[in-house]
Design a protein around this nucleic acid. Sequence first.
DNA 1: TAAATAGTTCAAAAATATTTGAACTATTTA
DNA 2: TAAATAGTTCAAATATTTTTGAACTATTTA
Lengths: 95, 95
Amino acid sequence: MTKQTHSTEASINVFKALADPIRLAIIQYLSQHDQALSCGEIGQAMQISKTSGSYHFKILQEAGLITVRKVGREKFVKLDRVTFDHYLIHFWQNL
Amino acid sequence: MTKQTHSTEASINVFKALADPIRLAIIQYLSQHDQALSCGEIGQAMQISKTSGSYHFKILQEAGLITVRKVGREKFVKLDRVTFDHYLIHFWQNL
DNA sequence: TAAATAGTTCAAAAATATTTGAACTATTTA
DNA sequence: TAAATAGTTCAAATATTTTTGAACTATTTA
């Protein structure tokens, strides 16, 4: 396409991250539990393989929708509602 | 994935529709002009083929992001901000 | 009625995204 | 130290999305 502003590109990453049933279910799960959960626990709840989980968490993180903290050998992820709000609630202002 | 509610499925269609640079540019263009514009005019502005335009307008329409009115041989499209707001601004409430 | 215009449909090609399994790193536990 | 656990990486396979061009429908204009 024609050239995009930085924020348009970032918006697309956010929308792409949200445009998948597994990732939306992960977000839903995180929203309902409202605390940092391990990738393993979430992956089990979603019934996906570790590899697939790793792939999806990376996309969510790169979009800025989750934050990640490593504790020992586990990775805990948490919803980043600030990014969510910035790109979704105030989307019109970026147009 | 596990089963999705109706509204989750609709959300995914909205996010998928937004997860593409051409469609985001169309939305941007419509937002800036704030009136119904013909598919042809928009397609020219985006520098895409008629076929590609037809494909993208269909996805936007099926997601409910635009409304379409046929006048003679032309199709005029307009942003549907109600859908947009419903799925994006109130997204959290559907989680 | 013939030609032009706006848009659609179809199937094939190309591009992207997702899944899979095996091998890997890092950390913890026995 | 060995075994187990949590997660990553890679390349190949699969699935999905997007583009392309040709043929099509519907409508308008000459």
